[in-house]
C-alpha cells in the first residue's frame, strides 16, 4: 500500500480539476462512458474475430487478398465502426488514467496544464489512429 502523505492537506485539493475533467468526459455521464466502453469493446472484439477468421481461412495472405477482403462495403463499414469504437474506448481509458494520476498531489499547482497537454497529445494520437486506417479503407479503389 502507498505511503501516507506526511502533511496535512497533501492528499486533496484537486477542486479546479473539475472543469477540465468534466469537459473532457463524454457527456459528463459516467454511465454513458461505462456503456460506451463496454459496447465498443464488444465491437472491437467482434472485429478482431472477423480478422482472425480471414487470416485463418485466406491463404495466401497477400496484398491482393487483403485488398479484396477490405473492398466490400460491409467490411468498410465494419472497419469504420471498429476504428471509431477503438478510438472511443481508448479515449475513455486514457482520460481515466490521466485524471487518476495527473493530480496536484504529484504535479503541483500546474497539474491542470499538464493534464490538458496530456489530453491534447492523446487526442492527437487517437486522431492519427482514426484518420490513417479510415483513409486507407475508404481510398483504396
Amino acid at each position: 500500500m502507498a505511503h501516507p502523505c506526511p502533511r496535512r492537506g497533501g492528499g486533496g485539493g484537486t477542486g479546479d480539476l473539475a472543469l477540465v475533467t468534466n469537459v473532457a468526459s463524454f457527456g459528463r455521464s459516467g454511465l454513458a462512458d461505462f456503456v460506451l466502453q463496454r459496447v465498443s469493446a464488444v465491437v472491437v472484439g467482434l472485429y478482431a474475430l472477423c480478422l482472425l477468421g480471414f487470416f485463418v481461412t485466406a491463404a495466401p495472405v497477400d496484398h491482393a487478398a487483403l485488398a479484396d477482403f477490405f473492398e466490400s462495403l460491409p467490411m468498410r463499414v465494419f472497419t469504420t465502426l471498429a476504428v471509431v469504437s477503438l478510438a472511443a474506448h481508448a479515449w475513455i481509458g486514457m482520460w481515466t488514467i490521466g485524471t487518476d494520476y495527473i493530480r496536484r498531489h504529484y504535479f503541483g499547482a500546474g497539474h491542470t496544464v499538464y493534464l490538458a497537454i496530456y489530453l491534447i497529445v492523446c487526442i492527437g494520437l487517437i486522431s492519427v489512429y482514426v484518420l490513417w486506417p479510415l483513409s486507407v479503407v475508404w481510398t483504396v479503389p
Binding site: A2, H3, P4, C5, P6, R7, R8, G10, G11
Partner: peptide, 15 residues
C-alpha cells in the same frame, strides 16, 4: 502505520 492515503495529523492519527 497510519491508514494510507489520508493526511497524517500525528503518529497513527489521520485526518
Amino acid at each position: 502505520r497510519p491508514l494510507p492515503g489520508l493526511p497524517v495529523v500525528r503518529d497513527l492519527v489521520v485526518d
